[in-house]
Amino acid sequence: LSNRVHALKLQSVQDYYRYLFNEGGLNSEMSHIEETVTTNKTDFFREIDHFHYLRDSILGNGMRRPGTKKFKAWSAAASTGAESFSMAMLLAEHALAYPGFDWAILGTDISGRVLEQARRAIYSHNTIEPVPAALRSRYLFEGQNEWQGKWRISPSLRNRVQFRKLNLIKEDYDVDMNLDIIFLRNVLIYFDPTDQLTVLARVGRHLAPGGHLFVGNSESMIVRMPQFCQVAPAIYRKEP
């Protein structure tokens, strides 16, 4: 928080705390605090086994809800969008094989700064290295001239992925119900045990029966909900 101390011309972090809690500064500072203290680590196809399961077991085996017109996914800690666009590539590939397949993705995060990066969908060469070559050639465009070394996600994916600010600690989520998959990965570890269970319960309500919840591999032991059955490491299916 030292950057905020300097920006407000205060002398110490203790002065900053006093400004927040005794002088009414918390509301005006909250957006700055969110940007400063949140962790935004992300990669394309991070924890690759989850994407293999999505491709092979959910999409490949036709594990779809009967009568569903659109396959809907939520990346609940989207950061700069790498997770959302990794999912989008697999859903787009499935749509190429099955032209009637319709899909959409919502990515949410507490940080408006990283969401702006996600909406721009421009990434460095090092960032997109985990993307398989076949998917890279189809869904990523390499920049030219002053944009050399940068890559942008194709419009065919950007048009189907929306990004929105959302705080998982808030009571109500502006997110569709009856989703097919939810990626809630590598964010629960930053909550205390009570908030972990609360967030899981709230997120779980947005998943359709038969839908799948993905958490980070280090978070698997956190998921303890009677309606959810573990089907693979850190992957849970919501039972009817």
Rank of each mutant, 00 (worst) to 15 (best):
E146F: 14
G100A: 07
E116C: 08
V5C: 01
R18Q: 15
E219R: 13
G60Q: 09
G60Y: 10
W151M: 13
V37G: 06
T108Q: 04
F163T: 06
N145K: 15
N159Y: 01
L168G: 03
A77C: 15
V187G: 01
G24L: 10
S31C: 03
R120E: 09
K72I: 11
I122T: 12
A104H: 08
Q117E: 08
R120D: 12
H52T: 13
L26P: 12
D15S: 14
R120T: 10
K9M: 09
I222E: 02
A208Q: 07
F183A: 00
L200N: 06
L59G: 04
M63D: 13
R18M: 09
F71E: 01
H52M: 09
Y53L: 13
S218T: 15
Q14W: 03
T42E: 10
N159D: 13
R64G: 04
Q144F: 08
A76H: 02
D109M: 12
L91T: 05
R120K: 14
I189W: 01
R55V: 04
N126H: 13
S111Y: 02
Q11D: 03
I189C: 01
R160V: 07
T39H: 08
L54H: 07
A134V: 07
G210H: 06
L188H: 03
L140T: 01
R119W: 00
M30K: 12
A77D: 08
R18S: 14
D43E: 15
R64P: 00
R55M: 12
G25H: 07
G67E: 05
L8W: 05
Y19I: 04
L96A: 11
H94D: 00
R202D: 01
R136P: 02
N27P: 04
A104W: 09
F163N: 00
L157M: 07
Q162R: 13
A232I: 08
A121F: 08
D176G: 01
V199D: 03
E23F: 09
G149P: 13
R152F: 10
M89E: 00
A76Y: 06
S84V: 01
P132H: 05
L90D: 00
L96K: 09
L213H: 12
G67A: 07
E129G: 03
V199R: 10
Y123H: 04
M225W: 06
P209W: 07
G149V: 03
M89P: 00
L90H: 01
G60I: 10
E171R: 11
L1S: 10
N126C: 02
T68V: 15
D102Y: 02
F45A: 04
G24A: 14
Y190V: 12
F85T: 00
A104Y: 09
P233D: 11
P99I: 11
